[in-house]
Design a binder for these strands. Structure first.
Length: 880
RNA sequence: GGGUGUGUAGCUCAGUGGUAUGAGCACUACGUUGACAUCGUAGGGGUCGCUGGUUCGAUCCCAGCCACACCCACCA
């Protein structure tokens, strides 16, 4: 017996535990069926599930469950990411609470602490994924820093290095002074701010009263200036080119050079050049062979090359300005809108800094990654994202992969005593290589830098399947079928996976890439902890059930658009689950149980034939929509069928049968209802796996689990079976509408006039009379043929399918009816004008497709007919 | 500065070259009809951002404009 109320909490976790224990999520490695594989975008190992995951993983689970039911051999590869900076940050913050810094511990101890932290809090997100219903193969769970994946990282690193695609270089990089590490361009967020523009002057060397005027937003960097540039075409300033000027305060002489970088229109037309602290200036410096003067320490304090050693940049800025003012070089300070770079994790200002770093030659790797998409080996869904991808890939810069962190993959690089680099997969091999190089054993020191987290994530599609070892999983499931992820990590991850996979595997990592949007709050605002507008998926699941949240995500997912949270909508889908639950209870109460050997194609009753055809139609729609990754359409198709067709109509239509006396009809209807309910459970299962499974198990003993049930495919739909009941449904709706509009009491006797009164419609009415009366709440319903004389005390009403006459004098509000009919007449007249205009337009008649013209004529005829009837009805009303 | 996307019912959004049978929520009226009030029935509500163009016909295609959102680059 099903409980009276739907309480998802009672069964969701139990059902999940059963799936997992029974190995229902594992692929069958012995089968030769088609393969389908997804790798999960690995969440941070110490993270918690947020709505973005809920969306991403729901979509994946829908695809996974759908393909599993299609009979494919399905692998959903799961795992977590070590998330270098993010994790190190959390652990450091925890330590800070105890007043300890990572340096107090030392590298080894610190890394040990992070591992402990990972063990402690690492399980959260995977538990939460289970709660959501994600049917991934947990027996194959991986971690980006586990032994196998670390080996993959080392191997590919060595390959890239030996191919010259990884190199070390002293370059200006984005420096995060909080974590004291380089970060990649992508990890820098540009924020609009109103800053200040400072105008001051440098005296020209050897001249008393001559100055060159400078404008800058960062005066403290003047101590690193090694030139001032003006444009060679700058009429006002070009005479200074070749002279020297003096940097005040430190009184260092620097040349005034000609360079196109100096735009005469901007600032004062003269630019101070600080090659060690500005990307543009660095280029200028290179063109003119200027020396580089570094003025910053790694913690963004000024160094010994400045008079303000040890000071933070902002403080040094104040001092510099004060000093310039004191010396009389300061001219003016203006507000200036500008963009300042911040670290996406640390939130501190990113400083360009000259350091030794390691780079991947991304422009070279990008070539194959671009080609693969150009030639359709990998397809974006929606397609428009390939533009974004191409745009970025074609302008890609070398990727800085070294991080001066402690948590991550330490680079497989060893240095000899003279600094010679040995890149090998392990220390033993490095030593061998060194011995060969030097002709004797030497002491090696290992590079301390670790790799950018995204380096290991970039290998995810094949490293998780067993690479670099031979692996049957790799053989079967690589390339994977589809990657599902948000547009915000196309660059971080999708692009890098493409590059790494094309390089190492010579094949795309996935054949399709489904891109979805962000989950926003109810008002469309981005969710963030600082705004306090985040919604915890676990709380939502607690309140409405995982199925409701999942269905919501699916129903809201329209390609390329963000999803706005809406609690009322989630509640709506919980209501949908309740509705289904109650429909199942109705079936249970009426003894509708699946009948062995039942053939849905041989049912006799019109309602049963009808619902079978509708069910197949709905199944076909869902299938087509899922194949096209149209999640919202697929979800809505199931929803419509289950609620709008099965609950609202079929169950109602079946009541007269269940409460009637005809045993044969009852037996057939029970079996049909059970079949249709099963069908709903199947096509709804990918979206709402829990309630469907619970009902499936409760309804009857099964020899197949729902999760492995056969998805209906290529069914013949008996469209002829639809007409009769569709007609009755329209008729009942029309009668109801009439009743409601005219306050006709329940149990009235109605006589209806059938507009297209032919034998078949009269027969329909005869056959379905009881059913129609029950649903329309009438005592009796009779029909007249078209030629039937219409008596004066009847009011007629125009509807799409039927004209209804009622002997209801005294019950009807004739004034209101008159007004309604007049309005109707007005509309009809307006439409008729339109038809006439169109049909008398020769170019329409000649050039529009024949079918369209015919349709227009048909509409005109129909409108004329209706007009006549409305006029007739009005006349009759006038007689009362 | 370059690019992308969006503007359709009160709200959040589907959708389509042929008079918008649009969806969910919200709203109004009625309703304890033997699954369900987490419900049922009926209903109100839109000149499909603005202006031009293409077309027999445009909400849909094209151009311009306005508004909003996002991405990339840069601003001495």
């Amino acid at each position: 017996m099903l409980d009276k109320t739907y309480t998802p909490k009672d069964f969701e976790e139990k059902i999940y535990a059963d799936w997992e224990m029974s190995g229902d999520f594992k692929p069958d490695m012995r089968s030769n069926k088609d393969n389908f594989a997804i790798v999960i975008p690995p969440p941070n190992v110490t993270g918690v599930l947020h709505m973005g995951h809920a969306l991403d993983d729901t979509l994946q689970d829908i695809l996974v469950r759908y393909n599993r039911m299609l009979g494919k051999n399905v692998l959903w590869q799961v795992g977590t990411d070590h998330a270098g900076i993010a994790t190190q940050m959390v652990v450091e913050r925890n330590l800070a609470k105890e007043g300890i810094s990572r340096h107090d511990l030392g590298r080894e101890k610190f890394v040990e602490t992070v591992w402990k932290w990972k063990e402690k809090s690492g399980g959260t997100i995977t538990k939460q994924l289970r709660r959501l219903g994600a049917s991934c193969d947990w027996s194959r769970e991986r971690f980006t820093m586990d032994e196998g994946l670390s080996r993959a990282v080392r191997k590919i690193f060595v390959n890239l290095y030996k191919d010259g695609l990884i190199y070390k270089a002293k370059k200006l990089v984005n420096w995060d002074s909080k974590f004291m590490t380089a970060v990649s361009d992508l990890e820098v967020i540009q924020k609009e701010t109103v800053g200040k523009m400072y105008y001051y002057k440098y005296p020209i060397e050897g001249s008393e009263n001559e100055f060159i005027h400078i404008a800058t937003t960062r005066p403290e960097t003047m101590f690193g200036d090694t030139a001032v540039a003006v444009s060679a075409e700058n009429e006002k300033l070009k005479h200074l080119i070749g002279k020297n000027c003096i940097i005040p305060i430190i009184n260092r002489s620097i040349p005034i050079i000609a360079d196109e970088h100096a735009d005469p229109e901007k600032g004062t037309g003269a630019v101070k050049i600080t090659p060690a602290h500005d990307f543009n200036d660095f280029e200028v410096g290179r063109r003119h062979n200027l020396p580089l003067i570094n003025i910053l320490n790694p913690d963004a304090t000024l160094n010994e090359n400045t008079p303000f050693e040890g000071m933070k940049t902002l403080e040094a800025r104040e001092k510099t300005i004060a000093k310039l003012e004191e010396l009389g070089f300061m001219e003016k300070i203006e507000d200036h809108p500008m963009v300042i770079p911040y670290g996406d994790r640390s939130g501190v200002i990113i400083e360009p800094l000259m350091t030794d770093q390691w780079f991947v030659d991304a422009p070279v790797l990008a070539k194959e990654a671009i080609r693969a998409v150009e030639q359709g080996e990998m397809e974006f869904v929606p397609k428009s994202y390939e533009k974004t991808y191409f745009e970025w890939m074609r302008n890609i810069q070398p990727w800085c992969i070294s991080r001066q962190l402690w948590w991550g993959h330490q680079m497989p690089i060893w240095y000899g005593p003279d600094g010679e680099i040995f890149c090998e997969e392990n220390e033993t091999e490095a030593k061998e290589a060194a011995a060969k190089h030097y002709g004797k054993e030497v002491e090696l020191t290992r590079e301390t830098d670790v790799l950018d987290t995204w380096f290991s994530s970039g290998l995810w599609a094949f490293s998780t399947l067993g690479w670099p070892d031979k692996s049957e999983y790799l053989d079967k499931f690589y390339p994977t079928s589809v990657l599902v992820t948000g547009f915000d990590i196309i660059f971080f991850w999708v692009a890098r996976m493409m590059m790494m996979s094309m390089y190492m595997m010579k094949k795309v990592p996935f054949k399709k890439c489904y891109i979805h949007g962000l989950v926003r709050d109810e008002k469309g605002q981005k969710m963030s902890k600082s705004k306090g507008n985040t919604v915890d998926p676990m709380e939502t699941i607690e309140k409405y059930g995982a199925d409701a949240l999942r269905f919501f995500m699916a129903a809201m997912e329209t390609q390329g658009r963000d999803v706005n949270m809406s609690e009322s909508r989630i509640a709506g889908y919980r209501n949908f689950a309740t509705k289904l639950w109650n429909a199942a209870r109705f079936c249970e109460m009426n003894e509708c149980k699946p009948v062995a050997g039942f053939d849905e194609n041989s049912v006799k009753l019109p309602v049963n034939k009808w619902i079978v055809a509708k069910a197949k139609q709905a199944s076909k729609e869902v299938t087509e929509y899922l194949n096209a990754y149209r999640f919202s359409d697929a979800a809505n198709a199931v929803y419509q069928f289950a609620w709008g067709t099965f609950c609202d109509w079929y169950i109602e239509l079946s009541k007269p049968i269940f409460y009637g006396e005809n045993a044969e009809e009852t037996v057939e209807t029970r079996a049909t209802a059970a079949w249709v309910l099963d069908r709903i459970l199947m096509i709804l299962h990918p979206f709402m796996p829990f309630i469907t499974t619970e009902l499936w198990n409760n309804i009857s003993e099964r020899n197949v689990k729902l999760i492995h049930a056969q998805w209906p495919l290529n069914e013949k739909i008996d469209t002829e079976a639809l007409g009769e009941i569709d007609w009755a449904v329209d008729l009942i709706s029309a009668v109801r509408s009439l009743r409601s509009g005219m306050n006709i009491p329940a149990g009235a006797k109605l006589t209806i006039y059938l507009k297209d009164a032919n034998a078949s419609s009269l027969a329909n009415l005869q056959n379905l009379n009881k059913m129609i009366c029950t649903l329309a709440r009438l005592e009796k319903i009779e029909a007249f043929g078209a030629k039937q004389e219409i008596s004066k005390d009847m009011v007629q009403q125009v509807f799409k399918e039927a004209v209804i006459l009622m002997p209801l004098k005294g019950v009807v509000d004739f004034a209101a009816e008159k007004e309604r009919l007049s309005k109707e007449l007005e509309t009809l007249n307006k439409n008729l004008e339109g038809y006439a205009r169109k049909l008398s337009n020769p170019s329409f008649v000649e050039r529009a497709p024949a079918a369209v013209v015919e349709e227009e004529k048909r509409r005109q005829a129909e409108a004329l007919e209706n007009k006549a009837k409305v006029e007739e009805a009005l006349e009759r009303i006038a007689n009362f």
